[in-house]
Write a protein that binds this DNA or RNA. Structure first.
Lengths: 352, 352
DNA sequence: CTGAAAGCGCTTACAG
DNA sequence: CTGAAAGCGCTTACAG
């Protein structure tokens, strides 16, 4: 039991019965509320002994800081900068922004402010520049949510700020030791394979095109897909390495002319390929793909793509913003990887 | 512009620039904060003229009550009773409870208290009894979340409390004019049909068993399913009305012995039927169904069921609790029907 | 190193 | 019908 208890009755009454306040802890120990607050907030201007005594009692009484009172008193605005990727595809960017804005609005009474900057996905330097600008004013930055376009450089730049600024990566993981929100691409690949295995039948031929690893998703998509699909009686043709759109189209034409291909799986550039390939080649084939975009919507509507598996992008932004709130306002750092769910989309549940 | 502005400078400064407080409104009008609070909270002990003057200015300055300060001051505990259905199936009840408990915990600092009572789904009277008990102490009830087992009776009992207690129905809709959280069963039926249309092929035979309308979902499932499936080239056998498990099994056996049935759809009692029917009859058939339960999990694992479409039950509880919070703490009554999403489950994304 | 006081935006007796 | 004051749980100068 804690030392220095001046007020035994209060101690007994509070133990495990209700939420304890700093005021009550102060009363039990016969000290001021200010001192209790100092201990709880980790101030350095407090005697080690006093601090220990307070923290011990706080833990014994299951003290949990009331973040509502806290944020009301602490009028500080908490600014969270979000550096996200632009033009991944039309949906990705707008949905992730919508998610971030939704949580921003939800917590706006807490003076939780979310500032979003989307930079061109193929210009990592632009992101680095903006990141540096933001960090120049690091004292006014409570959190950073980032889709690192250049992992190594971003990591190096951020390293001095670990522990000072709350950091979350989104979509692309920055590092194992930094909280992350994003999908498990391997699982997504295996989900696509699972669907394919249900719509193709024994001994039917599936053509697999490997268009390489974009270091974001396509490598893992293929890995997850292959692991699962090889576990079926589907007759696999490939994976044939192409690496770009033209070669893929050429290969698909050639393979399909010589074999009775019933399905196609492409791990990268799929929508671009399906968009421009001669549609007569695709006729009667079962196609399942990843992601969502206007082009995919159209391909689903016209019956070329049967299913697509997409990340819950809105929720990705929303959850990143929510986890950041927890980190800032509740000092909750328990999350390592919040895995985004996936949705299976086809004609019947396609929005608008 | 508002009348009675005593402090023009403040008025100009505040207009549209920042969140306005009651204190500031009071200062501009040269009256006390208490009076402003009275107007905003709709007290009756205030002169009509004063009230109008305050509300007009508040609206002009886009005043929005800070629910954080509000709930900190108003130490009142808000109790929300949740009367949900037990043994719909193992997952339904436990997931909906988990959702309600999650939101309860999330808002516990606001003194938001959620009390859950699950009653046997086939004993509506038991629920009525508990509901009456709760309403006997209506002054201590801020909200009610209910899956009405007997709509008419529940509605009649609740009628005198409309406007006094916040009410949300969940799962089964109580009435058009009461906020509701739950799935769109017709859409769910059409989603199942959409999947079936992708895994069966032209001219393949699909047997449809109609087991009647449980007034909750099965009637609408079938409606949505039929509308969509009739729009394909699948060869439909049925719907054959059975109405119970034994007849269904008998019918399936008979039809399958005479036809080359490639798929089966049953709108009600599906899991019970698949559980006990001779499995050799199902071999090689494509089966898609609704809902989730341990039995369905096993049927998916053993390859009998290809896909199942289930409601996002956890989110149903979570969202009901969240919407209730908005109603109580932010006086937000804008939601009429929060449509629960659906998940498509098959071997690859089956949990545990 | 410690504490008294004022304040965040609101509510709620209490007095007039 | 109106207002001054105390309080919710906390933070943050300021004084000592």
């Amino acid at each position: 039991m804690s030392d220095g208890i001046k007020n035994k009755n209060d101690f007994k009454e509070l133990k495990n019965l209700k939420r304890v306040t700093q005021k009550e802890i102060a009363k039990i120990l016969g000290i001021s509320r200010t001192t209790v607050a100092r201990a709880i907030n980790g101030s350095e201007f407090i005697k080690e002994e006093t601090k220990l005594k307070i923290l011990e009692l706080a833990s014994e009484l299951n003290y949990e800081k009331n973040y509502i009172g806290s944020s009301l008193a602490n009028q500080k605005e908490n600014i969270v900068h979000c550096l996200i990727a632009d033009s991944f595809n039309e949906f990705y960017t707008s949905e992730i922004i919508r998610g971030l804005n939704t949580i921003h609005k939800e917590y706006s009474m807490y003076n939780y402010n979310v500032k979003i900057t989307a930079t061109e996905i193929h210009s990592p330097d632009k992101q680095i520049e903006i990141l540096k600008n933001i960090l120049d004013d690091a004292d006014n930055v409570s959190g950073l949510i980032i889709t690192p376009l250049n992992k190594d450089t971003v990591y190096k730049i951020l390293q001095p700020y670990f522990g000072k600024i709350n950091i979350i990566s989104i979509g692309t993981r920055l590092s194992e030791n930094i909280p992350h929100v994003g999908p498990n691409h391997i699982v997504q690949g295996s989900i696509v394979a699972g669907i394919v295995s249900n719509i193709l039948r024994k001994d039917e031929k599936l053509l697999i095109i490997d268009n390489g690893d974009d270091q974001i998703s396509s490598g893992m998509y293929l890995k997850g897909f292959l692991k699962r699909i090889r576990n079926t009686y589907i007759d696999i043709v490939g994976p044939i390495y192409c690496g770009n759109i033209e070669d893929s189209i050429h290969t698909i034409k050639e393979v399909c002319s010589k074999n009775d291909i019933k399905g196609i799986y492409i791990n990268r550039y799929a929508q671009e390929i399906y968009d421009i390939i001669d549609k007569s080649i695709l006729e009667g084939k079962k196609i399942v793909t990843h992601g969502m975009a206007n082009s995919i919507k159209n391909l689903i509507k016209s019956g070329i793509i049967s299913f697509t598996v997409m990340e819950e992008i809105f929720l990705e932004g929303y959850n990143a913003g929510k986890i950041m709130f927890e980190m800032i306002y509740k000092k909750n750092n328990s999350i390592n990887w919040s895995v985004s769910g996936s949705k299976i989309i086809f004609l019947e549940n396609l929005q608008d």
